[in-house]
């Protein structure tokens, strides 16, 4: 069964230097006839389909449009052209802890963040203890999270995001948070999720992970599809290009 289908998806942005946020500016430009916008094509004509249970890896350089593509599929961005069809509920793990309220306690935030991720009340009530246990927060769960350390916050966020077994999981880099112990635990949890028959879309710069986990790979470069197909062949090609361009310093800027 086809879970995700992208048809000729294009995404264009107005460049932020030209963005107008005040009425005066807007009117001045309208009058002087300079109401033009520089456009930037983040994605152009991207098509692919993901079957149920498939793990699709998305690779490419910084600014290739990987995160934009994930946002389009999660429904956050509406493509300028083309269409995306998704069957099943998506849990996006784009940025952990979006929607945390710092004045509320950890427990209250489990419900708030869970609701934002689309979990039901019954589900959260049943899984609340599991989340608290996994995050290892103990009694701190009744504290307002403004008193948390950043590691504690990430642990809680990770625990909420991964408690569910979604039909479609969208991952921007495999998240390894917290101290060494927790990192190992969270990585194991991620792999468990991805191996459990869930359809996964993942972005990663760690080629070993891609080779290990993905059934297929989509290689994006400057918003266009450079390659789409079997993991091994495409990864070899990508790494080959990476190595050859290392000389002129383009490939070494990989950090997100």
């Amino acid at each position: 069964m086809e879970m995700i289908r992208a048809d000729h998806v294009s995404m264009r942005f107005r460049l932020s230097a030209d963005r107008i946020t005040s009425m005066k500016e807007y009117l001045v430009r309208l009058v002087t006839g300079r109401l033009k916008f520089k456009e930037f094509g983040a994605l152009s004509d991207v098509s692919f389909a993901v079957q149920k249970g498939e793990v699709l890896g998305i690779i490419g350089h910084n600014g290739a449009g990987k995160s934009t593509l994930l946002k389009v599929i999660s429904g956050i961005l509406k493509p300028s052209n083309g269409s995306v069809t998704v069957h099943g509920n998506i849990v996006p793990m784009l940025e952990l802890g979006s929607g945390f309220d710092y004045d509320m306690t950890g427990r209250e935030n489990i419900f708030l963040n869970g609701a934002i991720l689309g979990y039901s009340k019954e589900f959260l009530t049943a899984k609340c203890q599991e989340i608290i246990d996994f995050s290892e927060l103990g009694e701190f769960i009744e504290e307002p999270i403004r008193n948390y350390s950043s590691g504690m916050m990430m642990r809680l966020a990770f625990s909420i995001a991964t408690v569910v077994e979604p039909e479609i999981l969208i991952v921007d880099e495999i998240l390894a948070v917290g101290d060494a112990d927790f990192q190992a635990k969270s990585k194991a949890r991620m792999l468990e999720l991805m191996g459990g028959g869930t359809t996964v879309l993942m972005v990663s710069h760690t080629m070993s992970q891609i080779r290990e986990l993905c059934d297929k790979v989509l290689w994006l470069e400057h918003g266009t599809v450079q390659g789409y197909g079997e993991t091994a062949a495409l990864c070899d090609k990508y790494e080959g290009k990476l190595n050859s361009s290392k000389g002129d310093g383009n490939g070494s800027t990989e950090n997100e």
Binding site: D101, D103, M104, E108, L112, A115, I116, G118, K121
Partner: peptide, 18 residues
């Protein structure tokens, strides 16, 4: 519905917090 409940709950709790 549940999300709206949670957001209303948050607005209300944080309004008079502290």
């Amino acid at each position: 519905r549940f999300l709206m409940e949670q957001l209303v709950n948050r607005d209300f709790k944080t309004k008079y917090k502290r």
